[in-house]
Design a protein around this nucleic acid. Structure first.
Lengths: 160, 160
DNA sequence: TGTGAAATCGATCCTTA
DNA sequence: TAAGGATCGATTTCACA
């Protein structure tokens, strides 16, 4: 698709700013990176187009939303053939409670972030994972709180 | 702190929309929730003020940023007194590689999301966690990819 | 790729209900 | 709390460097 595009210093400053404040006006952003508004906008559009910027989102406080419980669940599959992984990942799409799935190396295969309204909903979902979806081992953690959040990723400052 | 504010249907529709597209214009948002732009804006400002909306951010593709490795690390503390937790959480602030810390129930205490440029940086950081910061056990997972991301949280549709 | 000017469109405030 | 209208500022496009 997009062959290759090397981010320059200005791009990185734009990304850092938008990661911190996704609603800065283009004017303020242009000021901050010392570009004219039109040139700045062109850069932003380009970064969106090539997929470096994947979207803009409001961050909500989950505990004010009445969503129930947030679980962090470690999952190991029974088998490790390519199609078993593919099948599991495809099945995740049909599980609205699974809001995030990370495929990881190590002694587990996936780390899932799951939102359920209560424990019965979770035990039912867990049984389905183990019974139908080729999951061997499940370890459940209830998310209590997040003592640290750095917003986004550390975008390097230096470079070309 | 904030006494209590019960989100109504319109609030939830606003939140859902902003979670999906953090840069919708106020006009488009007002249309979507069937409110005048001024009334809509007042609601959004209110939701920001009471902390339901915690911020707006661009979501970047980490693999295009040249940040190195993303690790998901399970941590168990040596002791579980209140001040040991407090001390550990305070220490996290001084570790820029730790971009997210989740305090969880279960057989581990924390799940950390860590960004390092390479493995030597991680082994050094790990030694510091175990040597100086009261950590008993560390289990490391390298994040390979995210086969599923649902943006944000499932904001309920119904209710008052 | 960047700049500056021009035209359109949106955010925001204030008044009235 | 909501709507409507006026004002001001921002976005976006385009011709030119």
């Amino acid at each position: 698709m997009t062959a290759e595009y090397r981010l320059d210093r200005i791009d990185r400053r734009i990304l850092k700013a938008l990661q911190t404040d996704g609603r800065v006006t283009n004017q303020a952003l242009a000021d901050r990176v010392a570009l004219s508004p039109s040139a700045c906008l062109a850069r932003v559009r380009h970064l969106e187009q090539i997929g470096v910027i994947q979207g803009y989102h409001a961050r909500l406080d989950p505990y004010r939303l009445d969503i129930g419980l947030i679980l962090l669940v470690e999952v190991t599959l029974a088998g490790h053939q390519r199609d078993e992984k593919a099948g599991f990942e495809a099945a995740l799409d049909g599980l609205p409670q699974v809001v995030e799935a990370s495929h990881v190396s190590g002694d587990i295969d996936y780390l899932l972030k799951i939102v359920v309204k209560d424990m019965p909903e979770w035990t039912e979902l867990r049984d389905r994972l183990v019974g139908d979806l080729g999951v061997d081992r499940v370890t459940t953690h209830i998310l209590m709180d997040k003592p640290k959040i750095f917003i986004g990723y550390p975008v390097p400052d230096d470079g070309p």
